[in-house]
Computed example of a mutant assay.
Amino acid sequence: MTIRAISGLAALADAADAFLIDQFGTIHDGETPYPGAIETLRTLRAAGKRVILLSNSGRRASNNIHRLAAMGITADCFDASLCSGEVAWQVLRAAPPAYLRRRCRVLLFARDPALDILEGFDIAPVETAEEADLVMIAGSEADRHGYDALWSRMAPAAARGVPAICTNPDRLMLAGGRLHPGAGALAEAYQAAGGTVRWFGKPHADVYDAALALLPGVPHARIFGVGDSLEHDIAGAVAAGCRGLLVRTGIIDGLDDAALRVEMRRFSTLPDAVAPRFAF
């Protein structure tokens, strides 16, 4: 298994017309842009490349864009910003499942208490699994409360057969410089316990369908998914017919080539190239 190492995105300039670029772990650490990331985004656009920021953020797009702007990643850095929470909202509004066509009591798991991903529906937030008609898994607070505490709140709903929606499939998240179980890990456990989960976000198709709709006429083979997750950013891009650039930051920071090959085999995914970081 050969890893094609490149120093930056300039090596892909002749092969790419557009980039689907991950956020957390790729261009920022959740609070601060990585060195050179903003300049790289602007350089890509100046070179005529289309730049779509594609995130597994479980919130709506407006929240995500506001958060990016607060870091200095302003609208001139990208052509569009698309996140799993926004795609979930659009899909659910277009074809609401039965439990959202009536008043629905929602148990939310997220980094903050906002339920904007269910804006326009008749919902009532609840605090316990016993009250819930729906479990919404938009984020993880495992770094704050511990995984076991979160799962103990969620497990009774799975046992009751309460449906769940996951708008952030990331199984790992970085917080405080450490890896913790992400929303995707909670959703996987929910599914394993017999609950049903509807997934939105990378690597699932809905978010790529929405992203590719923003790039009409661009051959998929000339679109690169860029990110730090083989399981989400690279596998999702490849499944959509695009190509992949893995950056060695975020959740794979510190992995050597041997460990990286193990991960590639684990997820049956081979990126077209690997770069040390997001840089031109």
Rank of each mutant, 00 (worst) to 15 (best):
T2I: 03
I3P: 05
I3T: 08
S7V: 14
G8H: 04
L9I: 06
L20Q: 05
I27H: 08
P33A: 02
T40I: 01
R45L: 10
A47D: 00
L53V: 08
N56E: 04
S62I: 08
N64K: 02
I65D: 01
R67Y: 00
A70F: 02
I73T: 04
C77A: 01
S81K: 00
G85V: 06
A88M: 15
P97G: 05
Y99A: 07
R102P: 02
C104N: 03
A110R: 01
R111C: 12
A114W: 14
I117G: 10
I117K: 02
E119R: 13
G120L: 11
I123S: 08
P125E: 14
G139I: 10
Y147I: 10
D148T: 07
A149T: 13
L150T: 00
S152F: 03
R153A: 13
A157D: 06
A159P: 13
G161N: 13
P163M: 01
I165T: 06
P169Y: 10
D170V: 12
M173Q: 15
L174H: 07
A175W: 05
G176M: 10
G177F: 01
L179S: 14
A187Y: 14
G194E: 14
V197P: 13
R198K: 09
H204D: 15
D206A: 15
D209K: 03
L212K: 03
A221V: 10
I223V: 14
V238W: 07
G244Q: 01
G250S: 04
I251K: 15
A259C: 07
A259T: 08
L260V: 07
R261K: 11
R265Q: 11
F267Y: 15
V274L: 09
P276Y: 13
F278T: 04
A279V: 15
